[in-house]
Design a protein around this nucleic acid. Structure first.
Lengths: 124, 124
DNA sequence: TTAATAATGATAATGATTCTCGGATAGATG
DNA sequence: CATCTATCCGAGAATCATTATCATTATTAA
């Protein structure tokens, strides 16, 4: 992976935590203020390569655009159907599910993602 | 909801269980054999209205096309990253997750979906 | 400095899904 | 039965997220 200021700035932006569960388009908008000539393809490319390198995570959300997360620990997501905000939550039964899948159907899980949808506190 | 032979045939096809976790495109291909003049928009429209009516379920799969399920009971899905096959599995901790979300962040979950990805028995 | 390689930005292409349209049809009413 | 109207249909355009292509530029190792 070769250095580029685009990649560097994207990683810094992600790590800053200024963006909350941003989609690629959100990162693009924020990056435009830092590097006005950046293209959307470069944003996608770099988010993908940073994710491949394990420096950030790309998370597929059912029915919505993927989000990118600077947090690397195992956690799940709850999405408010009204405001769209994404909340992190912990639920450490991944091992239990993996074991069950292995025992019952011989399925070797590499990743387990739980996604809750509903209404957040503010929207109720 | 008005009757139409397209909707009727789509529901029959779904209920027959001949299709395994089909995407809209799969339903379209199968329906072409039954009603050769059917259009893809009609397939989407009817799958959506049948899902709205609670007769089938539309399930968003992270990173992939939505699938439609004739099974109405609560279950989760495991997707093989190699062959793409989708497996059903049960894991009745939904209530536990709901309660935790409610207690910790005041989030009222209406649906919880867990999606495992990895390798199925046949692909290992 | 140079040559090889990988990254860039613009834009075209893709895939899934929805929207729009004029025309057809189901089902209620007279 | 005749008619009316809401809903549905099929075709194709439009949308959205994402990836691919390509000519140009920047990085890096020699």
């Amino acid at each position: 992976m070769k250095y580029s200021k685009q990649k560097d700035e994207i990683l810094k932006l992600m790590r800053s935590g200024k963006l909350d569960h941003p989609r690629a388009a959100d990162v693009y908008v924020a990056m435009k203020k830092i590097l006005p000539d950046i293209g959307i393809a470069t944003v996608y490319r770099n988010l993908n390569s940073l994710a491949d390198a394990g420096l950030i995570r790309r998370i597929a959300m059912p029915g919505e655009a993927d989000i990118f997360d600077h947090r690397l620990d195992a956690h799940h997501h709850a999405v408010c159907e009204k405001c769209g905000k994404v909340f992190d939550f912990y639920f450490d039964r991944d091992g239990e599910i993996s074991a069950m899948l292995k025992d019952t159907i011989g399925f070797e899980a590499s990743e387990i993602s739980c996604c809750a949808r509903g209404r957040c506190a503010a929207c109720r």
